[in-house]
């Protein structure tokens, strides 16, 4: 549990994430979370009083930080904000409106009053739909702002990052081995297949091999650099992973 005090201007580690968020409008071309409506319980992030208290500097506990009833494989529930903490920003349309014009603008702008985070959503043509999406996105943003590493966005991001990392690692190991075998000179593929990585390798055709190897060498270099950045990068990556556009 993080006990850092949260101020209106967040501490540096968090502000790295939120330089664009506080007091400015974040525009969403894509959505972080669309699939499904989220099963099970949807605990409210914080009541009005506790959110204000948190912003004011009191270290209040937040309910979404990995509750004990979660199974190891379960993600924290999707956050939801209470309606009285939200304020819809009025977007003035140009000109007369009604029957006289036929605007396609369905944007919805939403402000979370305690944290002053503002987002604008014009993802769909339906304002009703945009209103729902804006609430989901804002809830995720506020969750990330208040709970940092313990937020759903960060946890889901971390899990995805880990999966992607381990996949990359496996692939790297495999092709390294492949390359070594090749270097030894003309050792049959069958031996390779029986090697560490098992079934997937069997599909590699002899002709394609060269190209794939080259491709992988390039990637390896990049990944090497990333590895140097170490743990910090992983944390940051985890946080960023789902925050932005997809």
């Amino acid at each position: 549990m993080k006990t850092t005090t949260l101020r209106l201007h967040p501490v540096p580690s968090l502000s790295a994430l939120f330089t664009g968020a506080v007091g400015r409008i974040l525009k969403y071309g894509g959505l972080p979370f669309v699939s499904g409506s989220g099963g099970g319980r949807r605990p409210v992030i914080a009541t009005s009083a506790s959110a204000v208290a948190a912003v004011a500097g009191a270290a209040a506990p937040f309910t979404t930080s990995t509750p004990s009833w979660l199974k190891a494989w379960q993600m924290p529930p999707r956050p939801k904000l209470p309606e009285d903490e939200l304020e819809e920003v009025y977007l003035k349309g140009s000109g007369p409106g009604g029957q006289k014009i036929n605007k396609t603008n369905s944007a919805v702008q939403l402000r979370h009053i305690p944290t002053n985070i503002v987002i604008k959503c014009q993802e769909t043509r339906s304002r009703t739909q945009n209103r729902k999406l804006a609430r989901e996105i804002l809830a995720a943003k506020v969750d990330l702002f208040l709970n940092g590493d313990k937020s759903r966005l960060a946890i889901v991001g971390n899990v995805k990052k880990k999966k992607a990392d381990s996949k990359a690692k496996k692939a790297r190991r495999k092709y390294k081995k492949l390359e070594e075998e090749r270097a030894k000179g003309g050792v049959g593929q069958q031996q390779l297949v029986e090697g560490a990585e098992g079934a997937e390798g069997g599909e590699v055709e002899g002709e394609d091999e060269g190209e794939e190897l080259e491709g992988y060498e390039e990637e390896e270099v990049q990944e090497g650099k990333e590895a140097e950045k170490g743990e910090k990068a992983e944390k940051r990556g985890g946080n960023n992973a789902d925050g932005g556009r997809h």
Binding site: G97, S106, R125, T128, Q129
Partner: peptide
Amino acid sequence: QPFGDLEIKCQPGVLIPRTE
């Protein structure tokens, strides 16, 4: 045209539903 949670079909000759 989306209208609330409905999808309203539109054809030339009939007014398009407005967000207002």
